[in-house]
Design a binder for these strands. Structure first.
Lengths: 151, 151
DNA sequence: CTTGACCCTGTAGCCGCTACAGGGTTTTCA
DNA sequence: TGAAAACCCTGTAGCGGCTACAGGGTCAAG
């Protein structure tokens, strides 16, 4: 099968597949005479695995690590388990951050209830105040509020 | 004051300030003879405002919108309020996504409990399965699990 | 023999910075 | 006076994880 069919089967885009090859998540494949990439079912499985992990918001680095375990089946399952635990911690931390964020935003919004002009808008005043929430902790790896950068 | 002091006062980095100027969040300032940017207290206020909003995980686009309200004090506070509401929705949605993610990950981790070798690692098997969680909704704008991209 | 569907490589863009390189200016101190 | 240090400047490239082109080649059907 060629890249288009692989893309359909793994619900991805051809460009993403080529990207994964470029960054070493998918192996370089055989080519046809016309220089088209050729894939088989194992590629479908591997790509589906990757997309599944991405759906679970793992980074490509984490997935790379998982794939190393999958590729070396004699290593202990413990590594996989540990990686997953770490990832769950990241997610948990991110949830907590977002929850406190949400509270702050809601408090802020109430500030507006009274006044009705920007001139004296409580929100803007609050936001101008110097006190700031602590920055989002020693940059771990669970993204911001805005747009997961893929489709 | 010059850029370094502004940076210290607003707890930012000079490079970030120049970046904000470049993308139009901060105005272009006067310069000294030696071509150094010159700032005053209003710049501190504006930059603190921006950093505060960033601390609340707003996008620069949202902040730009807020600044427009702040710059045009006759417009209604309602716009500010609406913007905030939208942002809160983003955050709420992201929290929900992450929570369901976490559940999936925890289920996955239990799969491992029995077997102890990757060869038959339940996690890897599960992850290879074709069923995938739905992608993270029509890309709104609250980032992934990994690393808020600033300090 | 042309159309169209598919494929290729390479590069630039998204966000919000960060981190240089390679220079200039100003202050400080011997 | 002159050197070092501390500050500033512009410009460019990088992060992650793609996406979206431009500008071409290949292949099957009509």
């Amino acid at each position: 099968m060629q890249i288009g069919e692989l893309a359909r089967r793994a619900r991805t885009q051809a460009e993403t597949i080529r990207y994964y090859e470029r960054v070493g998540l998918l192996p370089e494949t055989a080519r046809t005479q016309g220089n088209y990439r050729v894939y088989d079912d194992r590629h479908v499985a591997r790509l589906s695995f990757i997309r599944h992990c991405r759906g679970l918001d793992m980074s490509l680095e984490e997935i790379r690590a998982l794939l190393r375990f999958a590729d070396a089946p004699d290593e202990s399952c413990a590594g996989v388990d540990a990686l997953l635990e770490t990832h769950i911690e990241h997610v948990t931390r991110r949830i907590k951050t977002l929850q406190s964020l949400k509270q702050q935003l809601q408090r802020l919004r109430k500030t507006c209830a009274a006044t009705k002009e920007t001139r004296q808008c409580g929100i803007l005043n609050e936001l101008s105040a110097h006190s700031r929430p602590p920055p989002d902790a020693p940059v771990e790896h669970v993204g911001g509020t805005h747009g997961i950068r893929n489709g």
